[in-house]
């Protein structure tokens, strides 16, 4: 696993300071969406090999949610951005 994460607020930190909160690429369905869509959103997860986008929570540092893009094979970290900024970017 990627062992050093460059937090945009705290700098380079070991992975022990973080908690991984799961896939960040999911999009919440509309409230009126079908039961199947909601079931997939809540329960069904892929276990991809390669590039993944995940929510990481910097529990022992700034306590902010981050969006980490990393490779599950090579352990390379491509980008780390603040969750709020990423959400604002996605809404645009």
């Amino acid at each position: 696993m990627a062992s050093l994460i460059t937090c945009p607020h705290c700098g380079v930190r070991p992975k022990e300071e973080f908690a991984i909160r799961g896939d960040a690429s999911l999009i919440r369905p509309a409230p009126s969406a079908s039961d199947e869509a909601w079931h997939d959103y809540v329960y069904v997860r892929a276990n991809p090999r390669g590039r993944t986008v995940e929510h990481w929570h910097h529990i022992a540092g700034c306590r902010r949610f981050l969006v980490v893009e990393r490779d599950t094979v090579t352990h390379e970290v491509y980008s780390v951005v603040d969750g709020t900024a990423a959400a604002r970017e996605a809404r645009r």
């Binding site: 700098g11 380079v12 022990e16 300071e17 022992a60 540092g61």
Partner: peptide
């Protein structure tokens, strides 16, 4: 602590939350 504490990286007056 897993943070670089050399004065060049963590200068006097600096502060941060760490494990």
């Amino acid at each position: 602590i897993g943070v670089d504490l050399h004065p060049a990286a963590f200068a006097r007056g600096g502060s941060t939350n760490v494990l």
